[in-house]
Design a protein around this nucleic acid. Structure first.
Lengths: 203, 203, 203, 203
DNA sequence: AATGAATGAGGTTTCATTCAT
DNA sequence: CATGAATGAAACCTCATTCAT
């Protein structure tokens, strides 16, 4: 049995990456379902059928885009979590890391935001649900630690706060444009000020 | 021969409303594009073709759902804005009103969140872009008034803050379930605490 | 949950049958793979897409054709086997029944001949393999009984004979045309003469 | 510039043969249409495109496989026919020769069985139809001679008998595996016993 | 001889929509 | 009001084939 099926990873990984970047951009802009395979091919300067030399299906492109993004994201997150910082510093680091990921993988993040809920139901995208669970675990425990250590307000509804912070950060992918006037770290800092200290003047 | 269109506003407006509610629910859950007309019809207990007695097209259902929602939303918003409250009270009232809308039109809000960006490009959905502009105007001016009146922090990046608050509030539609343990007013109050005073303990 | 998916058996079973007969004819003539869904639709006087109102897929048409045929076939076979005739009479009845089935389901038999081997590997067509096993059982036991009762030659290689008779009968579907000059019973009789007594003159 | 065709008869004819044997095996197993050029290439340990260095097209592979087989078959048949044996001996020799061909060209025979009918319609494969005609001529005349010489039963329907014997022999290719426990000559002998003398005990 | 990448025609399938009943 | 059947455009995907390297 010499080969299996498609080249998959046989071919030059750079071409794959190029094509995936193109696809991610279009998925992010138009939505996965509304994106035709021809649109992607057009954008890549080839015919629709030619994409299938590199990928099994439209869905497998989506999967690879999301997996690649989540892998990198968790690299960053795990580094933060393993550093065992205080709760406030952990929260700051997670938020900053998140904005860096938005900077690097804007399209993937936008896709994730729009599509992950209904994708997670499919067997193939079970890894999304798993990531979501780990995500929740990391944030909830940080918030709990913070309340316990009295660095976060004692009256917080933890789950509500988790959703608040989580959405607050990730939705930024829908308007963020890399290379704009604010660096990801700058945006992170401003967000952290608002989240931690609020927008009202201290009285 | 005046028209040769469909009945449009046929007999019972209640049936229309029922069907639109069903459609909105499915659109919200699966995304507009991914929703087939048959799925809606199934859910409504009829055949796909029968929907066309009530509506011109799938798109016209979407339009009516969004228009109805935005009309009601602006009723509420305009009432708030016309009251000419102080900036902090205006912000509180807008946020509270928003959560009430999420409570009443959860599906429509979710659809709006997911689809409005790419819909707004179409002529037919120009009203979305217009609403967005008014929205932005209302919020930006409130924030500016607040900074001027020194009730909001002087160092705020107004546009960034606008996005922060806007997203933070509306994304809640993606997880909010009417009839849960928190009333919309309760959630609004918690959100406002976080937005205004932050989650960190005051030192 | 009102409905499931497609009408399946909802619609008029006569139309289904008509379409399946058309499809069977084309499958038999051109081979399943070489038959395009458009060709079937053309033959039925509709557009390709319209077939999907009645059937889930091209493959499901094939499945239904084969199932229907095998169901009827086994009705006939079981009647013969349940009659508990002598081995020679059983063989005669089975052969006659087979030619009757060829007469009634010529297309299905031809398809079965050409495609069953590679279809049987698929989960969906496992019923083909099962039928084949029952088929073999019926014939082998009849032949064995016959040898035991000394109505068939004692020197027969049972398995080889089984294949010989089986193929000999069913391949007739490839040239048989219903409504020709020979009735199925007539052909059966001639075949039986050859199979039982050979073509050589008795010496 | 005489030609601009492919090498066609390139360097080593052995490689061609190897590749054709591989192709024949796959065609026989999966059917010509269902066989992709990649599958053949996989089996041969190369990439699909590389086959086109050796052959013009998938169809030309099929043609060469069938031509080679028929050439050899007719070598054998012509030898038998030229020997001008008696009708019974001719029949025995033809059957035996056929099983030898099945032994040597099992894949080609299987392909021939499955595909020849619909291929014969194409200009390119007209040689199949011609072969079939010669085939029929050889067998019919042998049977007629046999009836005339009173070595075959006088009541035979010659055309029906022709089909009976022909199918009986060639279908064996669908189950025969070279190198099994029966030699082709052995199988031929058993078949001839059945065809000539039947399977019933003489009374 | 063979590879890697692409082409382009054509196939199956989906789905919004229409319309006679 | 609703059904049953069909349309037709467009989608995803397959695959034989080509060709520069």
């Amino acid at each position: 049995m010499p080969t299996k099926k498609k080249p998959q990873v046989t071919a030059s990984p750079e071409r794959r990456r190029e094509l995936l970047d193109t696809a991610a951009e279009v998925f992010a802009e138009q939505g996965y379902n509304a994106t035709t395979v021809r649109k992607i091919a057009d954008e890549a300067g080839m015919l629709a059928g030619s994409l299938y030399y590199h990928f099994d299906s439209k869905e497998s492109m989506l999967e690879e885009i999301l997996r690649t993004f989540l892998d990198e994201l968790w690299n960053g997150y795990d580094a933060v979590l393993d550093a065992e910082l205080g709760p406030r510093e952990t929260l700051e680091a997670l938020v900053t890391e998140s904005f860096r990921e938005i900077d690097r993988h804007r399209a993937a993040v936008a896709i994730y935001q729009k599509e992950s809920r209904h994708l997670a139901a499919q067997q193939r995208f079970a890894f999304l649900a798993e990531s979501q669970r780990n995500f929740e675990k990391a944030w909830l425990s940080t918030l709990e630690r913070g309340v316990g250590a009295e660095v976060f307000r004692p009256d917080l509804d933890i789950r509500l706060t988790y959703r608040f912070v989580r959405d607050t950060v990730w939705v930024a992918a829908s308007w963020y444009r890399p290379g704009g006037q604010h660096s990801p770290e700058e945006i992170a800092r401003q967000y952290l000020t608002m989240v931690l200290d609020g927008i009202a003047v201290r009285t």
